[in-house]
Nucleic acid binder design. Sequence first.
DNA 1: GGGCTGACAGCCT
DNA 2: GAGGCTGCCAGCC
Length: 105
Amino acid sequence: MSEELSFRERVWLIIAAIPYGRVTTYGEIARLAGSPRAARQVGGVLKKLPEGSSLPWHRVVNREGRISLQGEDFRRQQQALEAENIEFTQQQTINLDKYRWSGHL
DNA sequence: GGGCTGACAGCCT
DNA sequence: GAGGCTGCCAGCC
């Protein structure tokens, strides 16, 4: 198929498709983007994400259901998730069995 | 054009 | 069962 879209652009589209109140993992996005082993690159894309992107990047967590960010970024993402009624455990972990979005709309 | 870096995931000890 | 190391691939210098 035509690969006109860059891998980075595909990641944007996938993240934009994450429903409200749900989360997904870097590996899942990489898989949907066509590169199951590119989970790390997904993070790289989000790191250089334009501020005006308006993408729900906060709905992306690691395979453990935890936020991979640190410091202030960690707090911002957590608040954004809590704003969507997503519950955190005392370990600051999300129950993926409950909130995980497998790309199935 | 080549090499280094890195919002992870999986395998090994 | 938990912690640590390596691998992998797209971006950027």
